[in-house]
Simulated assay, not measured.
Amino acid sequence: MIRILWADTDQVPASDRGLAYGDGIFETLRIQHGRPTLCDRHVERLLNGALRLGIPLIRTELESAIVQACRRYARAEDWVLKLILTRGSGGRGYRPPDAPVPCLILSAHAMPPLPAEGGVKVALARLNLTVNPVLAGLKSLARSEQVLASRSLPRHCFEALMTDTAGRLLEGTRTNLMLRFDDGWLTPPATHLAVAGVMRAQVMDALLARGEPVRERSIEFAKLVSPRCEGMLIMNSVIGVMPVRSIGCVELPVSAGLATIASINFFVDSYV
Rank of each mutant, 00 (worst) to 15 (best):
W6S: 09
A7T: 11
D8H: 14
D8F: 06
T9Y: 10
D10G: 08
D10M: 05
D10Q: 11
D10P: 04
Q11D: 10
Q11T: 09
V12M: 13
V12Q: 14
P13W: 08
P13K: 11
A14E: 15
A14R: 15
S15E: 15
S15C: 06
D16N: 14
D16I: 05
D16M: 12
R17I: 00
R17Q: 07
G18I: 00
G18R: 03
A20Q: 15
A20F: 04
Y21R: 09
G22Q: 05
G22M: 04
G24F: 04
G24K: 11
I25C: 06
F26P: 01
F26H: 10
E27V: 00
E27C: 00
L29M: 15
R30G: 01
I31H: 12
I31M: 14
I31F: 11
Q32W: 05
H33M: 10
G34N: 05
R35D: 10
P36I: 01
T37C: 14
T37W: 06
T37E: 11
T37S: 14
C39N: 09
R41S: 08
V43I: 11
V43R: 08
E44C: 03
E44R: 15
R45M: 03
L46Y: 09
L47C: 04
N48D: 12
N48W: 09
A50H: 10
A50K: 08
L51K: 15
R52W: 00
